[in-house]
Design a protein around this nucleic acid. Structure first.
Lengths: 147, 147
DNA sequence: CTTCATGCAAAACATTTGCAGCTGG
DNA sequence: CCAGCTGCAAATGTTTTGCATGAAG
């Protein structure tokens, strides 16, 4: 388990290092990102931030999340159908398992992707920069529900 | 290499089997899908279909492509930023390598995903239905161009 | 002939943008 | 102070939808 505090600190440090400003809104957003295990949507982050910072706007959440993504402090999981989801705890590519019923997203322990990229480079000539691996299925609790 | 003719036939067969109608527009769209190696967007399919069938509408292309997806005769690659891409030749999950500059998509030869799903089932309890594996990078010709 | 498909335009929806005013450093 | 951030509303771009007309079976 990563210490939430240190992740928040590292994000703040990154902001300062690039001379972006540390505003109360940004602090609130990045706290939600780090404390969420659920891979929240922007809308969800917005709700949580508003509860103790009521004047925050949705646009600011979008802007902050995009900024953190560009600084590699957040992993964006884009979905064409429905909203994007964000992971502030493991801001690097890793596999996800997604429930197609309840939209829950979990991080499984899986290895064996790194060696594929060297194989790929040889075969395709591409310079590989990042990847995305999602498994879609039905989670245990939805399996019961819909049986 | 799959025979284009047989893929078109199998799509038509599937349509008839589910009592969907075989219209000239649908035939034209599915021919483009099968003859494209480029993983076309809906817009791209639309252009090509219009050239020999000028009255076709974009909405019809969307509807047809969605129908074929539901019949498992086309693989949809959704992208949140930009348009979705379609593969009528290999309508089942398989890895893709995507150029982030020119948006080219190629199918690499890669194996070793099937065994991951059994591992996943054990670890997460999910019933895995499908997956998606994309590698993002820069293709050989864009590597030259931007050097 | 009946039902389903087409084509047009309008709607939907998440995300981005423009801009006036505010504020962190 | 002043560049950069915020919040609002309007714009964007892709995909979907409603509905009248047309064509497949």
């Amino acid at each position: 388990m990563i210490e939430p505090k240190s992740r928040v600190e590292s994000m703040l440090k990154k902001l300062r290092a690039h001379q972006f400003r540390v505003t109360p809104q940004r602090i609130a957003i990045l706290k939600v990102l780090v404390c969420s295990i659920e891979h929240p949507t922007v809308e969800r982050i917005y709700e949580q931030v508003k509860s103790d910072f009521p004047t925050t706007s949705l646009a600011t959440v979008y802007k902050t999340v995009t900024l953190l993504k560009e600084l590699n402090e957040v992993l964006e999981l884009g979905f064409p159908e429905g909203s994007n989801r964000y992971d502030g705890n493991k801001p690097y590519p890793h596999p996800h398992v997604i429930c197609i019923k309840c939209k829950k997203i979990v991080d499984p322990d899986l290895s064996g992707l790194a060696d594929m990229t060297t194989e790929l480079k040889k075969e395709t000539g591409f310079k590989i920069i990042h990847h995305r691996l999602d498994f879609f299925g039905i989670c245990p609790s939805c399996q019961k529900k819909y049986k």
